[in-house]
Design a protein around this nucleic acid. Structure first.
Lengths: 120, 120
DNA sequence: TTATCATATGTGCAGATGTTCATATGATAA
DNA sequence: TTATCATATGAACATCTGCACATATGATAA
């Protein structure tokens, strides 16, 4: 414990110089962290998780999703909008229906990673 | 197009029998999906993301986190509580301070996976 | 054209969430 | 003991969010 105490923000016990160097003086760009939080936020709702989970098995139209998830067509449609904006799902028109599917493998991977944390 | 139309929930264009079998008739246990959404929800806040990101480099006490993240001690402490409950961080007492660190490698992995989706 | 089906969207509201402020707790030092 | 530092916590408040409801859009069929 040296006398450079007043260079620090905190008192003696504080780890402002962990391992001999300043501890993480800066974070990455604000915008990246904001986008990152936004991405996780999109996963962070039960209805959306159910939709994504259902789409892991096969592509599905809105009314099927509504039945599988167990909620209204309106709620599903609203959440699909959110998922589209986050580029987690894509869709195509097929007659009267709109058939949704997962946008890419990242979604699978993130869900799997989340599950592995839950189930450990 | 057969006449089993009334067994279906939707009309003709609907993909209720994708690839010849019923499309994802059921979801996993409600509780698992709820926990999964909850986990992602915990990642889904800018302040918490900043905290986790800062902890990727080194363990840190609360006041250092407050300075790095750029918010009040109270806000950080409240969020650390949330992160603790989600088992994303752990801590130990060291004198007056409480030194926080990431709970395990899952956190690293999930953040990395999220970033890779953002930056593609 | 009209009717119907599938989906999307605007609005309003109830519940959830994050922060601030004040205060409590817990540890150390005098 | 008292004083101070570091952290935790309770409460109030403003904002955000997901859903219900009504309605609009868009495609198909009669």
């Amino acid at each position: 414990m040296d006398n450079s105490k007043n260079d620090r923000i905190c008192g003696d016990g504080c780890s402002h110089e962990v391992n001999g160097h300043p501890a993480c003086p800066e974070l990455p760009e604000e915008e990246i962290l904001y986008d990152l939080a936004d991405l996780f936020k999109t996963f962070g709702d039960t209805t959306r998780i159910k939709i994504l989970y259902a789409l892991m098995n096969s592509e599905l139209c809105v009314c099927d999703l509504a039945e599988i998830v167990g909620t209204s067509q309106s709620a599903v449609s609203h959440q699909l909008r959110t998922l589209k904006q986050a580029r987690l799902v894509k869709f195509r028109r097929e007659g009267k229906s709109a058939v949704y599917s997962l946008a890419d493998d990242h979604v699978h991977t993130m869900l799997a990673q989340g599950l592995s944390h839950i189930c450990e």
